[in-house]
Write a protein that binds this DNA or RNA. Structure first.
Lengths: 239, 239
DNA sequence: CGCACTATGAGCGTTAGCGTACAGAACTTT
DNA sequence: AAAGTTCTGTACGCTAACGCTCATAGTGCG
């Protein structure tokens, strides 16, 4: 078991070769990520990339009228700031902390440099990006076709997978913002899940009681995304 | 004006350096893409990548129950088969021809080879991939928040941009499949647009009469995606 | 020319989720 | 302990889109 403050709690960092990691480690800086903290604003320049260890960050799109929706989630399996090595410098998304914790950050320029000189890092990050692509695609499909109940299950499972614990700290209001639905809708859906004995809900405190039950109730989207992460990044093994 | 069968009608091919293009051109093969043709099936191995010239290809996700939804569109500004250079080999999407025409295809292995040896090609394709990412993210948001009317406008504009003509050949049934909605819904929405004088619709034959009007009626998603393509790939200039 | 087929249009009742409003419950602060 | 704040639950009318069914109108073919 790694100490909680070890950078290697991030699976991408853990998958690096000794060489690559050696180039990063002197400049890796541990930062706390409080709930709601905005890592990047849509269109802003990226100074750092972030490797979450025990936190979860959502990529949100915020519309002109203020309504929002999550397009992807990143936890200790990933990195925030892919636009840097993809070459676009910015993204039209906001990155906001959905579950408080910590991350290690790295100057963007350093990442870019190593990315351009290391085939290994390149392959790793590109495969990660492809997994992220799948997640976004699946989010699109899910938003189109599946019920709020199903989406809530998917979302809880994605969050659960990215933390080590069955306890999630998040209000229904927050979840509603992520899913882009009404808070009352979440209340109702969560109520059903609680009645079914799958979760326990108490004032910003969710406990997953029956993981398998949630999976059964979720739409196929969750499984598709998880399979794809496992396929593309076997060295990380989210489970 | 280029001849219609020139590979350079594809903007990505046109943006290559002379060197890179010279490596590709002997193996570029022109193929007709009839309406409905499936280029890739979800999860299948990719033998070739395709560069559309006068065709449009949709990336669809097809669910277990047969329902479907488009996650992105690719026309002469892009390439189909990004999983090859991203390292994943396959994608959980189906690629299907949405507007008949032609494409040039290239053996996947060759593309991979050149990709790994040419920084220029790498940067170009990665920036394209980032634009695609934005398109997927925006599709997700749009599916969540916008009305069928707005989405239809967005979709018509995206298609219009990828052809040279104001005439689109597609049935309402087809559009419904792409958007993941009922055919009757499309009938109704298209009826409204026709009444407003923005398009003319006649049995699989759409004519865009008032582009600006469509833009005004579309949600912000269209503009966001278009801006991002233009920003990331200025050398292509879709307009 | 007439027949068959395919695309479109129109009319139901149904439903998931929205917007709004308000009440109770659980923490926090003083 | 009281007051204030933040979460959660409940209710009610409303609307977009659904699923289904059937009618009409082009189009192509024998």
């Amino acid at each position: 078991m790694l100490p909680l403050d070890d950078p290697l709690n991030n699976h991408l960092l853990a998958a690096l070769s000794a060489d690559e990691y050696a180039r990063f480690s002197p400049q890796l800086e541990r930062v706390p990520l409080p709930l709601g903290h905005v890592l990047y604003e849509s269109g802003h320049e990226l100074r750092h990339v972030y490797f979450p260890t025990d936190s979860i960050v959502s990529l949100l799109y915020v519309m002109l009228d203020g309504a929002s929706a999550e397009v992807a989630v990143v936890g200790n399996e990933g990195i925030i700031g892919i636009a840097l090595f993809m070459g676009g410098e910015t993204m039209p998304n906001r990155a906001v902390v959905q579950s408080a914790g910590h991350a290690y950050r790295l100057p963007g320029q350093l990442l870019k440099q190593v990315f351009n000189n290391s085939i290994g890092l390149q392959h790793l990050l590109l495969r990660y990006t492809q997994a992220l692509l799948t997640q976004m695609a699946q989010t699109a499909v899910c938003n189109r076709h599946h019920s709020l109940d199903q989406q809530l299950c998917r979302w809880l499972l994605l969050s659960r997978d990215r933390l080590s614990s069955d306890e999630l700290l998040m209000t229904q209001e927050l979840i509603a913002n992520m899913l882009g639905v009404r808070r009352e809708g979440v209340t109702e859906a969560a109520g059903k899940l609680q009645e079914a004995g799958l979760i326990r809900y108490q004032r910003g405190h969710i406990t997953v009681l029956d993981r398998a039950g949630l999976e059964a109730r979720a739409c196929e989207c969750y499984a598709v995304v998880k399979l794809e992460y496992d396929r593309l990044l076997p060295e990380l093994s989210t489970a």
